[in-house]
């Protein structure tokens, strides 16, 4: 059964942390496809795949909550983009989007600058033993086994202001957590929503001179 060992090894590699690389490659490849394609709806399609692959990246790193939030907010949010894309490009001048050379240069420069920032911050972090989880190796802070809720519970505690790292040590105060900022942002969003609904509603024109309709 030696011919079976290669695929089995591949499966085992994926389960032992290789999925991270698969998803990372997929995210990058789809992101390139977004840039290359010229049709808005196709761009949306590749964007969805890229964002979904990022969610997969989070899942394979045991960050369930972040992954699900990525699916709900980013991939779901692309839905609206997609709808606009379809509505704008079902016909007409926007069917194909071609960028001029100047725009390409400008976009390229901005992209490279962003890449520089990301790379420098990625390199400056001391990763230590926080690499992808693999079987048989001890894992560092931030990775819990699935029975203890992966990273979700720590996130929830942090949200309420209890830092899991501080537990067990004598501390006189708790940090305020993210509950208040979160609530402020959500109320803000609600205000924006109501404002948008007010602006977008159908305006009934009232003609004063005309006799009332019967």
């Amino acid at each position: 059964m030696s011919w079976l060992s290669a695929p089995i090894d591949a499966v085992a590699w994926v389960f032992q942390g290789g999925a991270v690389y698969v998803f990372a490659l997929m995210a990058v490849a789809c992101a390139v496809a977004v840039v290359v394609s010229q049709n808005v709806v196709r761009m949306a399609f590749w964007l969805i795949l890229s964002l979904a692959a990022t969610a997969g990246l989070f899942f394979s790193l045991n960050a369930d909550f972040v992954g699900a939030a990525q699916l709900l907010i980013y991939v779901g949010g692309t839905l609206v983009l997609l709808i606009f894309g379809v509505m704008l490009t079902a016909s007409g001048p926007f069917l194909q989007i071609r960028s001029r050379p100047g725009e390409m240069v400008l976009g390229g420069v901005v992209g490279l600058l962003l890449l520089g920032v990301l790379l420098s911050s990625a390199i400056s972090v001391d990763w230590g033993n926080r690499g992808p989880r693999s079987a048989g190796t001890t894992v560092g802070v931030g990775f819990n086994d699935p029975a203890s809720g992966n990273t979700t519970r720590e996130l929830g505690m942090k949200f309420l202001g209890a830092n899991p790292k501080d537990l067990g040590s004598n501390r006189s105060t708790l940090s305020p957590g993210f509950l208040l900022p979160f609530e402020i942002v959500s109320v803000h969003l609600l205000v924006v929503l109501i404002g948008a609904a007010y602006l977008a509603r159908t305006k009934r024109r009232r003609d004063v001179s005309a006799p009332p309709a019967t």
Binding site: D64, F65, G67, A68, A69, L71, L72, N150, T152
Partner: peptide
């Protein structure tokens, strides 16, 4: 998952 129902609604 600890967030099973959240995940299922998202997906």
């Amino acid at each position: 998952l600890d967030i099973g129902i959240f995940f299922i609604l998202a997906i």
